[in-house]
Design a protein around this nucleic acid. Structure first.
Lengths: 151, 151
DNA sequence: TTGACTGCAAATCATTTGCACTACG
DNA sequence: CGTAGTGCAAATGATTTGCAGTCAA
């Protein structure tokens, strides 16, 4: 598995260093998580205590630029990263719970029609889009009901 | 017109101060612009040189909380504000040009169906959504063509 | 070997906060 | 008049950068 990581970097002309490896491993071992750089640093530190946070910042932004990661920006301004899956087509969007702040994913391809419509109407060449839904997840809304009954 | 501003604040129990007035005026005079707090500060300073940036930060976030403004967060992490129009229904989305960074607006209501679908499928109660399109605006793509021809 | 990469600490940038002062209601 | 609101400067938090030392190719 490490080998894939190594190639990923070397194909693009970057060195495969221990710290980059560690950062990549953190993402591989935490599929589905959306981590801030601080969080990545925290997990990376468990595997390699000497790693510096500046290095993690540099690694994470490098990995984003070469397509290993995708950056997500939320309403509250925080930036989080997720591992970019191989199948690029598979565009997904995020549901952000306002209570527990958990981020889940949904697949909706309907946006393609929308883009086409906009391109024609407004003459704007769309290359990317960003859709996030905010609300309350199932878990939290059940919890709320429970609390209400306790009164 | 100032009177509306005054009421807007006083109805919610806030004082109508000169600095808040100035900030509101800046937005009123720049309909359609999406400004960072720094930019608001800059324009406000022309009307009232003594105003402090901390006050502008405070004013802008107050105005957002009482519905006079809407905050927008972009991919690059910047937060910008736009004046919230009276007709809340009128949900619009943003087109962000990657070249000139100009932000334009589009109206698309199709998202409602999408939300409904998601609510049913994933059991997530959606209260808000955020959709942005990134690409190249008409103006910039024409400019690019021009440059290509110059070669 | 040697330039890319790293760790560290200092710098930067956006935003927030403490505090004494001011002015709106 | 009394308190919410302000200006200023210092504090904060996230991210970046300069630099001397290190290590992958």
């Amino acid at each position: 598995m490490d080998n894939t990581f190594k190639e990923f970097l070397q194909e693009k002309g970057y060195k495969f260093t221990k710290q980059r490896q560690v950062v990549m491993e953190v993402f591989a071992e935490r599929e589905g998580e959306h981590m801030t750089t601080e969080e990545v640093f925290h997990y990376a530190g468990k595997k390699m205590p000497e790693i510096g946070i500046a290095t993690v910042y540099r690694a994470v932004s490098l990995l984003e630029s070469i397509g290993f990661l995708t950056a997500l920006t939320f309403e509250d301004g925080t930036t989080r990263y997720e591992r970019r899956l191989e199948d690029e087509k598979h565009k997904h969007h995020h549901l952000v719970c306002n209570v527990c702040h958990e981020i889940t994913e949904v697949n909706v391809d309907l946006l393609d029609d929308l883009e086409e419509e906009i391109e024609k109407t407004v003459h704007f060449h769309i290359t990317d889009h960003n859709l996030k839904f905010y609300g309350i997840c199932d878990k939290c809304s059940r919890k709320k009901e429970g609390e209400a009954n306790e009164v």
